[in-house]
Design a protein around this nucleic acid. Structure first.
Lengths: 358, 358
DNA sequence: CCAGCGGGGGAAAACGTTTTCCACGTCACC
DNA sequence: GGTGACGTGGAAAACGTTTTCCCCCGCTGG
């Protein structure tokens, strides 16, 4: 087999199809897209020729001509963060329905990196941008510049004072759901462990926390511990807490990753969750359900977030520049064992199978 | 003067820069890329003009002309699976160094979907493809066709009988590490919970498991339970196991997600890990470290996998078609508490802080 | 002083599409 | 039977680059 040839061989173009079908390239284009009527027999011939040659449109050329790459760019702080991964997966899935593809970049929570990748995407002539801006302030300038050239939707997080579409969930409600639930469970004292307020979500959750504890007659035993949205930080902050001389009834975490760190720290220190200490997360990433104990957390509807992101993008595309739209979805509380009743003790001895007779 | 043109939202082209700098477009191109010497004063002028206009190259046009999109396509079964997410993040990071970007798609473990997304990527004229083929057999045909047009690297999984580069880790060694470790810890009986052998990794791990248990004097109490690489399946299989009338000393899981499901099931049934039952995972995704108990697992070096993938791609690009290369990296065992000694009991009563005086 | 050469700028030809024209038949209608 | 109208195919012009030529100019060496 002449693999050699094929490697060297040009991939077939619309011109090759035209020759083979004995028509002009214009006719080929029209036959394949139906953009104008073509005699039925020619359509058949063209399709046959395309099929035989294994013709595939060149999306670059098409994009150049059409001034639209049918490509959407997305920038998230980290792909490995399962919340963002879920959003990205949702977006990707949604895009496939309209034959578009996803250009995915990670900013690593670094505004400079973020800005560079943004430029990259603009150069690729993306038709729209979905971004989880990493920094409340420092992401603003570049993003503003980009927003003048291409439709932009901010997802989850947002920057200050930028007139751009945004889609996210209501952090006030989310935090309120958690705190109200804790209050109902008889919690008196809490500790908030979250991330520094560089991002809008961290900021809003903190603000909401401060606003609601008083109203719900909860008491914070110490200033909120603010670090990063990572399990390492959760572990560290929790360790500090557990070695301190006062323990709250519950630890409220800024996201699930932090909560995992807290849970681990509790296990290591021998603090039992929820009987000694309740723990809550935020995001409802898929494995918060299989944590030990399963985590009470605030669900953000990632599929909806993804869907609406694209709706907003498309609307902006149609309408042209218009007044920015802010869509706020409602979160829901997922109650699991980390704020529930301690699990019942094991039910009697386990039967064990031994290789050679008992 | 065509100030008119420069105005309305049109993003500036190389031609605009040329006009502003008072040179030809050829000179602009050369000045910006240094592809041929240009008089220093002109270089300065061009750069200034480009800067002032906010000029950004049009990657579509460039790609069309250069016959290379400086884009790499990647297809994984699911972005939400943290192992693949880690690989994708590694690839993305690596690509940025050479100014390329990542086109990421998810196949959802469906060969038909996979094939469609593959076509999409080919149309986008990706310079290379990194794929985790979802099905050992059914992914082959399309992939073979694509491999004739564009450099392909299979990552982690691979299809049968395809002459293409592959990079992954040695599953024999990985499984052996786990089993040898268990044997050393005095385990006599084991149960394997993994995924159906539609994928090469599932198949190889199963084969290795079967090959080594005998040699290490372990005994499998039942046929391996084969489902999917999900925590739901782990949970289900484990539930069946725990309600059966025989319990192994250890459960060996095909990946970490399964292991999480198993852990959860154990907690629910009151089986203590590792004292009643040891559990091992595979992949070492980031939160296996914060599971309860932290999971003993096989680490796959995702960053290396990503790096080598791209090296292979680039080499194929340089050399043209060449005999396929298979790179096998070595996994390592990460021993944690899920096969260790049960954690020491809590150290005395915890101090609790109460709102109003103790 | 002239021929040759080298340095460097510009015109123009691709790259593969889509779409606007234009041309050519055929038909219908007066 | 002439003349529009209509239906449909083809030529060609973009889209924004990079790069191959070609040309001009100044220098150098004989």
């Amino acid at each position: 087999m002449d693999k050699e040839n094929l490697w060297a061989g040009r991939t077939p173009t619309i011109r090759d199809v035209a020759v083979r079908a004995g028509v002009s390239i214009a006719t080929v284009s029209r036959a394949l897209h139906g953009s104008r009527p073509v005699r039925p027999d020619l359509v058949v011939k063209v399709q046959a020729a395309a099929e035989e040659l294994g013709y595939r449109r060149n999306a670059l050329a098409q994009g150049l001509r059409l001034q639209s790459s049918s490509t959407i760019g997305m920038i998230v702080p980290s792909i490995a963060n399962p919340f963002f991964a879920a959003c990205a997966e949702g977006v990707e899935e949604e895009l496939q329905r309209s034959g578009r593809t996803l250009l995915l970049s990670a900013s690593g929570n670094d505004p400079d990196l973020e800005s560079r990748r943004l430029q990259e995407l603009v150069e690729r002539r993306i038709d729209g941008l979905i971004i989880v801006p990493c920094d409340l302030k420092r992401s603003r300038a570049v993003l503003a510049a980009v927003a003048e050239r291409v439709p932009v939707v901010q997802l989850d997080r947002r920057v200050d004072h930028l007139d751009s579409d945004w889609i996210g969930v209501d952090d006030e409600v989310g935090v309120h759901l958690v705190l109200a639930h804790l209050a109902e469970r008889g919690v008196g004292t809490v500790q908030f462990i979250s991330a520094r307020t560089d991002s809008s979500t961290a900021k809003r959750r903190l603000k909401a926390f401060r606003a609601f504890i008083g109203r719900l007659h909860l008491r914070s035993i110490a200033d909120p511990a603010l670090g990063e949205f990572t399990s390492e930080w959760g572990r560290e902050a929790s360790n500090r807490l557990l070695t301190g001389d006062a323990l709250p009834d519950a630890v409220v975490c800024g996201d699930d990753a932090i909560a995992f760190g807290v849970l681990q720290s509790c296990h290591e220190a021998g603090a039992r969750v929820p009987s000694d200490l309740m723990v809550t997360g935020y995001d409802d990433v898929w494995f918060s359900a299989v944590a030990h104990p399963p985590l009470t957390t605030v669900r953000q509807p990632t599929a909806d977030l993804a869907r609406v992101s694209i709706e907003l993008l498309d609307r902006t595309r149609e309408l042209g520049a218009h007044v920015a739209e802010h869509v706020t979805l409602q979160p829901s509380l997922v109650v699991r064992a980390s704020t529930g009743i301690a699990r019942p003790p094991g039910r009697g001895p386990l039967r064990r199978h031994h290789p050679s007779g008992e």
